[in-house]
Design a protein around this nucleic acid. Structure first.
Lengths: 230, 230
DNA sequence: TTAGTCAAAAATGTTGACATTTATTTGGAA
DNA sequence: TTCCAAATAAATGTCAACATTTTTGACTAA
């Protein structure tokens, strides 16, 4: 457990701590799709006992990153083309819904947040010739940009749905980024799309904004196809 | 654990078994909102040990039915007016989205399923003068009716979102049903609404169907207000 | 080479014990 | 009566041990 013994100074018990690590290792591709998660190996790798591991895996079960079979233990969920397409389509619908509601409810403060996030995204530069780490950093900035836009929908339950779907989609994105066929600039939109979206959102052109964001989310799924077809 | 020892004949371990019971007891109101879930008492009540209980509670954590604080254990999530309204609004949006997509994608087989479910709902009769058990049975039939309609959207991830929200909303509905102010006929729509919805869906009137179902889901939330305001 | 059986090894899921933390109670001082 | 500190009781989270189940490997027969 990286010698990070739970104490009063730490708000997380072992289960909560190892959850983050397990999730990261699944989403990043360290554990392969369908891989058996053997307790003895996890114990060694994460330096934590069976009970906290089982608790963390129980949470990942609900988040659909692992599956379990009685007496046969846990394994990472498989990845499939059908699921990837489904997740991306659902994400596009949800994002569109969020943007529309945000535009209905948003105020000046919300608009300022968008402008700031758009600025940061622009400063994050182009994706050409970036390392894997840099691409992940860029994507974080990109995600925060979109999060700023949808934050105006002011619906905790809807935003939670959005977060969960984003996470599940990130596994597919990483699977592709880790492959030898990844070309980041083919997946991630250039800055013109972002500017057009900001313009539509701030200009109150709801139908335009919705169409733009729907395509913005759904479009890149086509790029992921090849990694799931072989 | 009702002497139901896990065996090869049973696909569920203790954690999976007690999960169902715990969830039922939270959603039905046996555990009050904000109630501390004390392990020693749960052990006695469910006749199962700490580990399976913690695993089950870890799953309920993700499903937002319980919350946890390190070293202070688990407790049921509070219920709030704001959350109830948010959940119902999100449900209305999601249901509308599902219906719209189902109408885009549905086929004859899907339509037959709707007609059959509508028939069963009609045979389930009126809600006047029904016992608590009978109301729950009616609601199950009602839910299956709506599920038949949305099933045509053919999106597993979107339907999972729908199921999760329905579950969270059911806690609020039960809270109200258990109160001394419940009048079921005030909450549950009469059969005319259902017939109108079926007519719009099967007639391909998408905008009409979407408007009807949106109101159908969102409307009853007003009835729940009083139980959360005191 | 394939299929089946059996034994050994590995893995799973659970329990009771226990160190630690939190909550409650008791007693004393102001 | 209220507040605070200390003691006690209760609760939490984790672990090693272990019964049970599954998997693997070896062997034999066809």
């Amino acid at each position: 457990m990286v010698n990070n013994k739970p104490s009063n100074a730490s708000p997380d018990n072992y289960a909560a701590q190892v959850l983050g690590q397990l999730k990261q290792d699944i989403l990043s591709g360290y554990f392969q799709p369908g891989e058996k998660l053997v307790m003895s190996r996890l114990k060694q790798h994460y330096q934590v006992g069976v009970s906290p591991l089982r608790e963390a895996l129980s949470r990942l079960l609900v988040e659909q990153l692992v599956e379990v079979e009685n007496q046969r233990g846990f394994r990472t969920c498989p990845v499939t083309l059908a699921e990837m397409l489904d997740i991306y389509e659902t994400r596009a619908h949800i994002e569109t819904l969020c943007v529309g509601l945000a535009m209905d409810k948003g105020d000046d403060h919300w608009e300022a947040g968008i402008v700031a996030a758009a600025h940061r995204l622009k400063k994050a530069g182009s994706l050409a010739d970036k390392t894997h780490q840099e691409i992940q950093a860029w994507e974080l900035c990109h995600h925060e940009f979109h999060t700023a836009i949808v934050s105006g929908c002011a619906s905790p339950s809807l935003l939670q749905v959005r977060r969960s779907l984003y996470e599940r989609a990130s596994r597919y994105r990483n699977l592709w980024l880790n492959s030898d066929m990844a070309e980041p600039t083919a997946f991630f939109a250039n800055n013109r799309e972002h500017e057009a979206l900001v313009e539509a959102v701030l200009g109150g052109e709801k139908a335009e904004a919705e169409a733009l964001v729907h395509q913005h989310i759904l479009g890149p799924s086509q790029t992921l196809l090849p990694v799931l077809e072989r």
